[in-house]
Amino acid sequence: MDSLGVLERHAPGLALLAGGALLAHLLAGPVDGLQPLVVAVAVGFVFGNLVGIPAVVAPGVGSHKLFLETGIVLLGAAVVIEEFLVAGPTVLALVVGAVAGGVLLAEGIARLLFRLDGETPSLLAAGASICGVSAVVAVGRVLDARGTALTFAAATILIFDAITLVAFPLAGEWLDLSARQFGVWAGVSMFSTGPVAAAGFAHSAEAGQWATVTKLARNSLLGGVAIAYSVAYAARSATEPSVRRLWSEFPKFLLGFLLVAAIANAGVLSAAAIDSIGTVSDVLFTLAFVGLGLSIRVREMRRVGAAPVGVVLVHLLIVSAVMLALIRLLL
């Protein structure tokens, strides 16, 4: 298909995302303190559940993931490396603890408390502890998980993405957390990258940066966890995961984020250029968050059983409480 054909196929969906983004800014503008990014998610959610996603707009709407990843890459220009170097070792320790401890905790809760077996506990553990649905898919491919297990694990994570997107900003205000504390807390406790960024920016721009950077640090551990699972399940499967297979699932936009951050902090870019990049990043985030809202479907959430929801709920409560206590103590 030529470039003109690709543009024509994606144009209706892109127009829907743009219209939702514009509406979000119009609705948020008159309300002091209301973030357009949060309204963008709400606009997408309402439209997606009341109207649905017609086939004609589906290709363009699917581009919201690319917008999110590109926005994160450009967000690197706004990162002041000196600030993160000060808290870097502490934040990194929190990230490693949240991922390693979270995986083991979720496995134990699923297998011992809720009596789940097979690959489902591992899929839930990866999704809740690393990077949401992306981790579910990555670990699922490594383990050759069944389609049903993947579907229910992904749907469970999406339920909590929707819940935490609303609950965490409210909790952050109630707990009177600083921007850095809230951003790191969201980054180590919530699941998928999009909701983490949205929750962070709902608090403040600084919290959004901390949440995104912390979440990217968690995402970077996906490859290691996938390898660990492949070794643990080696005796049960005849399919050995290849390096190419693991690399295909690695969140490569993380590398772009680090590159842009390095360039910006090297003094190569002017202040005006950094401001322009930040503006483009904000636009991309708004488009992406409209698409994120469109992807949250109430009908699909109703199909998830009680056991997976119970596993992830207990995991979320324990991890978020422990991380909150550590963050208040250390940051």
Rank of each mutant, 00 (worst) to 15 (best):
G76H: 13
A55K: 05
T151S: 15
A153N: 11
L92V: 10
V39S: 15
V41F: 15
E69M: 12
D117E: 06
F45R: 04
A78C: 13
G44L: 07
T151E: 11
L123G: 14
T70F: 13
A55Y: 08
A87I: 15
V133E: 01
V95R: 01
V136L: 08
V99I: 02
V56S: 04
R115P: 03
V99W: 00
E107F: 08
L74S: 10
P59M: 07
A110K: 00
S134C: 02
A128T: 13
T90M: 09
L50H: 02
A40F: 12
L113N: 00
E82A: 12
A155S: 10
A145F: 09
L116P: 02
E119L: 09
A93S: 09
L68E: 10
L26K: 08
A77F: 13
V41T: 15
V96H: 00
V103E: 08
A87R: 14
S129T: 00
L66C: 08
L150Q: 04
G44A: 04
A149E: 07
A42W: 09
V139F: 03
L105K: 03
V86Y: 10
G88V: 06
F67Y: 07
L34I: 06
T148D: 08
P30I: 15
V95G: 00
Q35N: 06
E107W: 06
D117V: 13
P30S: 14
L66F: 13
A138I: 04
S129H: 05
V86L: 13
G76C: 09
A28L: 02
T156K: 07
V95T: 02
E82N: 13
V43R: 09
F84R: 09
L34H: 03
L68R: 09
N49H: 05
L74W: 14
G71P: 10
R146H: 12
L37D: 14
I72A: 06
G60T: 14
V99A: 01
A149Y: 02
V133L: 00
V99K: 00
V142R: 02
H64N: 01
A155P: 06
F84Y: 08
L113P: 05
V31L: 11
L150R: 01
A145M: 06
I72G: 01
A87S: 13
V96K: 02
A98G: 03
P54H: 00
D32N: 05
G132K: 12
A55P: 03
L112G: 05
V139N: 03
Q35T: 04
L34W: 04
A110F: 03
L94E: 08
P54N: 09
V103D: 14
D32K: 14
V73T: 11
V38G: 15
E107V: 04
G33F: 10
T148E: 11
A24H: 10
A110C: 03
G48Y: 05
L124A: 04
A135E: 08
V56G: 04
L26T: 03
A42N: 13
T156P: 09
I109A: 06
A149P: 02
G102L: 06
A110E: 03
L27I: 15
